[in-house]
Design a protein around this nucleic acid. Structure first.
Lengths: 328, 328
DNA sequence: AAGCTGATTGTTAGCGCTAACGTCGGGGGT
DNA sequence: ACCCCCGACGTTAGCGCTAACAATCAGCTT
């Protein structure tokens, strides 16, 4: 930095002012300094800066289940948003979602003195752990229910489920099954709830609920089961993978989609549009979610813990796996 | 730190010595200091430490295609190894694998003054970019071919493919198709190569090669195609997803696995063991790969660029989708 | 007993940066 | 003409830590 100052014929402090976009620097000087910086390929030392500003410009992202579409994309969304805002992201991923592992990971982030933490661990267990653990930096949880002790950014899963189910109701379906995700997953529970409420609101009775595990395999099994029973005209699957499995099961069972049975997925994975037939599904907008996350975290970092929540609305994407039920 | 020193009745330097496990500290003093540290919940300031040691204890991990099993798990492996070695990991993921995006991400890491970089971008494009770009910290690339300009940690894909194909050859198969991954993916090319060489070594002619895109869908289509042609008794799929798709296609086509046709996958995803029938596949040992990566990076960080390479040997996992071909 | 050795501890000087304050000069009000 | 003010810089003092050196003392040797 001293070198830059010398080359530009100013003091190191003026260089600092230029770097920090301080107002009281004349245009001439600013340009001279910028030229010197470019010429020397100077980069400011993060450690020294952190030492005096007491901020690391780093946020920690705690994740789990990164092989799943949702968590993986949420991570990417957060990471991109952080980078856009000039933050670095440090990540730690949980092999097992236990209080001890969570504690360890948070301790790791504290060692690094991160400025804030984003938690992407969509399990009830995590929710419980967070209520007990007390951490000294702002923390935003992704995908949890609203809770005054926690700042939360989430996709409105109930609304997403509602969108899917209401779409089927509007088409005239009255028997709408749900293939849900595994227990302990918060999103799975929320989607079940949304499915149930929407049926109730439409004055329809509860329908078949089959437990899956997010995998295409489990969707396939559920599809076979539904095809055999033959008592529904539509299925709402809690993710696209399971919808894919169900589609295949129906095709094997000789059921035509959407003529004989309608299918709605959830996630809008890139493949969804290229399935045969293209899958009607629910888009969650992970980029947006990541951006909201950073926004909340920045707010909490500036103003202290808010306990606020930011909810992203999912969007129904109608493709070709849904239609009105054919006559009985 | 001064507080800890005061509480322990020593100088701040002695506290520093204890923290850095310096030899010349008496046991009594060490214990007193440790007690004081515990009592005050003291954590040493990373920024100040970095400022003087000139190391950030952070490595940057550049990744792409994190929704795929391979890259995602490599990242997890590296991340875990880094944490074990006391390093923090900062990540940046590429939306698109272009020289500009790569350059940007590396620049981002330089701003953060990472101590080293791990690149998990399994594309030919990345390899080309790395040859031109010159970066001032040690860099280890994952999964690339050996190149003296680059330090590389990789799974021996050719061997993995060989293991799979040789297993089929040993069972007596003579017509072994390959469903490969998309172009530009280094691993896909290496597996094709391994398949081809092993056939040649066994004195067998080249067989059917069908291009997939890693998705179950593409494996399914390939499976249908192979079933229709009926000219092979075994299939080696370049990943488990495609093997899964092929299994389904064969089942639809009335081919019994492994009686009528054998299938070998690649990756050993957790689901592989639970498919029906359980899938014979190749395990890549991502944990090990991550550990090797860190080992090489640490070496290069200590001794300057080595251009060495560390190769992890994959392991064939024989389950129930492979058997000797039935008579003609 | 003086001197040397080595183990243990304390003292000092930065690492590179920013915040706070000091300085300087030129323009406007009286 | 005088003063004051304010914008545009420079100077100084740390942020919390570690490396290098200085100091101390016990246990030896000569």
């Amino acid at each position: 930095m001293e070198d830059v100052a010398k080359l530009a014929g100013v003091s190191h402090q003026t260089v600092s002012r230029v770097l920090n976009a301080h107002p009281n620097v004349s245009t001439v000087t600013r340009e001279r300094v910028e030229k010197a910086i470019a010429e020397l390929g100077y980069r400011r030392n993060t450690a020294a800066r952190s030492l005096v500003t007491r901020r690391s410009q780093t946020i920690g992202v705690l994740g789990s289940d990164m092989s799943h579409y949702g968590p993986a994309n949420t991570l990417l969304g957060v990471q991109q948003a952080a980078r856009d805002k000039g933050y670095f992201v440090s990540m730690a991923s949980l092999d097992e979602v236990t209080p001890a592992a969570i504690q360890d990971a948070l301790e790791y982030f504290m060692m690094q003195s991160v400025d804030g933490i984003v938690v992407i661990v969509p399990h009830e267990t995590m929710f419980e752990s967070l209520s007990t653990i007390n951490i000294s930096v702002p923390l935003v949880a992704v995908g949890f229910g609203v809770d005054e002790r926690l700042s939360v950014a989430a996709v409105n899963q109930r609304m997403g489920a509602s969108l899917a189910v209401q779409h089927l109701v509007d088409l005239g379906h009255t028997a709408i099954a749900h293939v849900c995700g595994p227990p302990d997953w918060i999103d799975a529970a929320a989607r079940i709830d949304g499915w149930r409420r929407t049926l109730a609101q439409a004055g329809l009775p509860d329908s078949v609920l089959i437990r899956g595990d997010w995998s295409a395999e489990s969707g396939y099994r559920a599809g076979l089961e539904l095809a055999a029973a033959g008592n529904v005209t539509a299925v709402f699957a809690a993710n696209d993978q399971m919808a894919l499995g169900a589609l295949r099961a129906f095709s094997e069972a000789g059921l035509r989609v959407p003529l004989d049975i309608s299918v709605v997925g959830y996630d809008d994975q890139p493949e969804a549009a290229y399935l045969v037939p293209p899958l009607t599904t629910v888009n969650q907008g992970f980029k947006e979610l990541g951006a909201r996350c950073m926004q909340m975290l920045l707010f909490d970092m500036a103003n202290g813990h808010s306990g606020a929540s930011s909810v992203v609305n999912p969007r129904l994407v109608v493709r070709s796996t849904t239609a009105s039920p054919s006559g009985p």
